[in-house]
Design a protein around this nucleic acid. Sequence first.
DNA 1: TGGTACCTCCCCTGAACAGGGGATTTTTAA
DNA 2: TTAAAAATCCCCTGTTCAGGGGAGGTACCA
Lengths: 209, 209
Amino acid sequence: MKKLIRVFIVDDHPMVIEGMLSMLQQQPSIEVAGYAMNAASCLGFFIRSTADVVLMDINLPDKSGTDLCKELKQRFPQMKILGISNLNQGSYIREMMNQGASGYVLKNVSKSELLDAVQRVHKGQQYLSLEVSQAMRLETQRQESLPLLTKREKEVLKLIVEGLTNPAIAEKLFVSLSTIESHRKSLLAKFQLKNTAALVRVALENKLV
Amino acid sequence: MKKLIRVFIVDDHPMVIEGMLSMLQQQPSIEVAGYAMNAASCLGFFIRSTADVVLMDINLPDKSGTDLCKELKQRFPQMKILGISNLNQGSYIREMMNQGASGYVLKNVSKSELLDAVQRVHKGQQYLSLEVSQAMRLETQRQESLPLLTKREKEVLKLIVEGLTNPAIAEKLFVSLSTIESHRKSLLAKFQLKNTAALVRVALENKLV
DNA sequence: TGGTACCTCCCCTGAACAGGGGATTTTTAA
DNA sequence: TTAAAAATCCCCTGTTCAGGGGAGGTACCA
């Protein structure tokens, strides 16, 4: 008999746990090792037991999924982690992958896709659902289309967005007004914008602050 | 024998459908009439069949939950609708309730709470989970703490946020520069702010545009 | 060791904004 | 129908911003 894939689930939504259990238990090659609704009880489980694949929500009540992912990977490098979340945001996904996750699916995943994903990551492959990889490409494009700001420029931009005037910013950063005006000039030039209002909007929309 | 509560589920996430089915089927007083993954097939179901309570996600692929809610309520005024979503945003919830929903729970709802909610709305009561009613109160407070803007002020604010200068706005609205400056003055006064940057930030944060 | 990017600062000019005052007409609501 | 609110416009003053130029010092990299 073939060895079963032991799957552990970490998610704080009872509904999602139930749904995943129901989906996974129908698959003969998969065995659900257990589940946890927060990071603490997940870590507790792994003191005495183990699993092949962990299905992990990014949004946990007590710890971020990325942190938990990192911790588990350090202790069990061979264990595979499959991120699960509603958020189709490239930045989160990338962060998760950087912390050692083997794949990422959205919560609107179908049963067959979920089973496929579990099996693939168990085999050591990487699995990103179509929408997820698209989102990552989009994110990359968006990042690349944005100008590169220097550290100082980011600081100044942040303070501008907070509503400080140039003189106030100058005072706060212990430099002269002229310096701030220079930075503001290069910010406007880099974004190809013509006034503060547009600058604030672009900064907020792209979460640069 | 007591009559069963017929429940119909509308959600585009297979995982959530599975989870809800599993939770509801364990309860002897509830009968799951069926489920749909989009508004169209939901409406299709209700051509030939009926239900007592509809569990409805707000985010559907083909139609907004609020619209579907309105439609169902028009055709079946006695049918109870229980909104379900991840979004704990007062504005959505309020909109849903205005369209005739009897209650609203979040997707992190526990099994017992879900069952309780279904039974309560079936009895004609209103059910809002604690977090939801808190969010609604917060929303109300937030709205009330914001100054009331006139129609014209909102127009001007919108254009400011878009990055237009006063002269450009004046041209666009066919009024003189002085008028726009007046509006801008009252905007800054109402928000108790001192410059454009802060104005844009507050406007965006409060989704006033 | 020279180039390049960054940070700093200054000059200048003109445009835009901030804030005070007041005034008129139109709309709205009591 | 009348008072309040909104929208329009103007005056004034001073500040801030936008955009052009240049320039010195540092830090890093090839």
